[in-house]
Amino acid sequence: MIYLGQTIKSSFHGFSELIRVSEEISSCNDEKCEMNFSKVDWFDANMCAPFGAILYKFYVKGWPITVYGQRPEIASILQRNRFLPNFGFDIPIKPDYYGTTIEYKRFERTDSASFIEYITEQSAGKKIPKMTEALKKRFRASISELFENAVAHSQTTLGIFACGQYYPKGNRLDFSVADRGMGIRRAVNRFTGQRMNAVEAIEWATTGDNTTRERKGGKPGGLGLKLIKEFIDLNKGRVHIVSDSGYWCYEEGQTKTRRFKMPFPGTVVNIEINTADTSSYRLASELNPDSIF
């Protein structure tokens, strides 16, 4: 029996809990594995993206994982965002009456078209309420950059996992994209020939123009995370990156880093935006179209 901790939030502690669960499931081998939710009294729904990335590997192997003991309010969250039903647990979908859920979904790395459909659908109507159009647009662009980053860099064969949640009381919207790819440390070290640890590799990847894109016949890269950081600065939001044993959090221009005892089996990027932001995001200067290229 594997017990989940009391709170699973978008934080160092929350990610640590998921990593611990991942390690414990791995040690089940292919025996029946029961996950007990009875101690859980808070689960940030967007954390279903990294949780899904963890579970999916075992799911495709056909390991018999069952869930047990979830309180009604926790079960309801994981039913509304379709996390539990999508994993084949015999639990029905619940309608999202509050319009606060951005559905949990897995995408193939080659299926950007489905992600675009997902964004369109999840952005429509009441799905992401109480945000200005300018903010919605920035938010959609940011999560799209995250997805395309995972497509370009993860080299995963298990897909890309996405989930989000609107928290009306705190005026915040969290969205997470996770993969089970090679992780930032391996990608950066392979590219640079250095031996950075996981935190240093994340710092490298989020600094300046750095990118692990190869030039030969390729496409330029390295702007996506920079654009997200700029947006988050203006919005007064927050970004978490978890990759391998590295934890990196960016908020109010400050970066906090830590190391996990055990690695996350891939990469997660979580953006948290302040939905009460009314900035126009209009840029002051006008550019001459004749001088772009």
């Binding site: 020939g193 031996r195 935190v199 300046g208």
Partner: peptide
Amino acid sequence: FFKDPERFKTAARKVLGGDDA
């Protein structure tokens, strides 16, 4: 990006090295 490919790799040296995690 295409003018100075090595610049991006050498930028890594500005980050302190360390043991692998």
